[in-house]
Computed example of a mutant assay.
Amino acid sequence: MASSSYEASRQGRLFGRQRPFHALLGGRKVADILMWKDKKLSAVILVGMSTIWLLLEVVEFHFITLLSYFLIFNILFFFLWYNSAGLITWSPPCIYEAGISESTWRYLFKRLNWFIRTFFEISTGKDLKLLFMTLIGLWILSVVGASFTALNLFYITFLCMMTLPVMYEQYEYEVNYLASKGNRDLSRLFRKLDSKFLSKIPRGPVKEKKFT
């Protein structure tokens, strides 16, 4: 039985997804970084964030102090670069190319709108299983958040984002097997809760609303 479940997990994907994991993460630069397609850039970001966490949490720099030092260093660096470019073979920096592109902002706003709409969609209770799982997840997050500082929680989340996707890609079949087994156990538990408690909760009619 276990072997047949394992073989079935090899054919399917995590949570029934149809697209590759890289496409599920957006298929762009962010996905390349999280999946370590660009190893140099991913390593630089990991080392940079780890250094910031070390300075703020271990060395106990204040955020404003660290930000001020960072800006001072960059001002001096660009000052020396710009004024010494004529003496060496480097070309001076182009200040008009600095900034965040409009496509990046549009992508961020699109994801934020998706999150808000999904939050309200779950809150309607049309999918009780999803509502129940969301409440349990938020409760677990509140317990975890009470045990860590915001900075440590953010850094742990960052490490998970930088390691779990690439580890899943490497051990996809094993993870699919464990996830499918856990999903079956969770569905069995939810059916018991639904038959005993959730199905007896009165709910009013929910109007369908299309998001544009």
Results as ranks from 00 to 15, higher is better:
99 G>N: 02
128 L>R: 12
43 A>E: 00
89 T>F: 13
18 Q>P: 00
3 S>V: 03
110 K>Q: 12
55 L>E: 07
15 F>P: 00
192 K>Y: 11
139 W>D: 02
126 K>D: 00
149 T>V: 08
116 I>Q: 11
89 T>A: 15
119 F>E: 12
34 L>A: 02
189 L>R: 01
186 L>F: 01
189 L>Q: 02
33 I>F: 10
123 S>H: 07
73 F>Q: 08
67 L>D: 04
31 A>I: 14
121 E>I: 03
61 F>P: 00
102 E>I: 11
65 T>V: 11
35 M>C: 08
23 A>G: 00
19 R>A: 10
196 K>W: 10
59 V>Q: 00
156 I>T: 03
207 K>H: 13
32 D>K: 04
43 A>W: 14
32 D>W: 04
145 G>H: 05
117 R>N: 13
203 R>M: 10
107 Y>S: 05
160 C>Q: 09
209 K>C: 14
132 F>N: 06
115 F>W: 14
9 S>Y: 10
176 N>E: 11
119 F>P: 11
166 V>N: 09
39 K>M: 14
39 K>Q: 15
27 G>R: 05
181 K>G: 03
149 T>W: 06
185 D>P: 00
26 G>W: 04
121 E>V: 07
152 N>H: 03
72 I>Y: 05
76 L>E: 07
149 T>K: 00
92 P>R: 06
31 A>P: 13
13 R>G: 10
155 Y>R: 02
125 G>C: 05
28 R>Y: 02
102 E>C: 07
93 P>R: 03
173 Y>C: 00
177 Y>K: 05
126 K>F: 09
60 E>Q: 14
188 R>C: 03
125 G>R: 04
79 F>W: 13
114 W>R: 08
22 H>G: 06
17 R>N: 12
203 R>A: 05
165 P>Y: 02
146 A>Q: 05
66 L>R: 06
161 M>K: 07
157 T>L: 08
29 K>F: 11
151 L>P: 01
197 F>A: 11
54 L>F: 15
148 F>M: 14
158 F>N: 08
48 G>T: 03
56 L>C: 01
134 T>L: 01
156 I>A: 02
84 S>E: 10
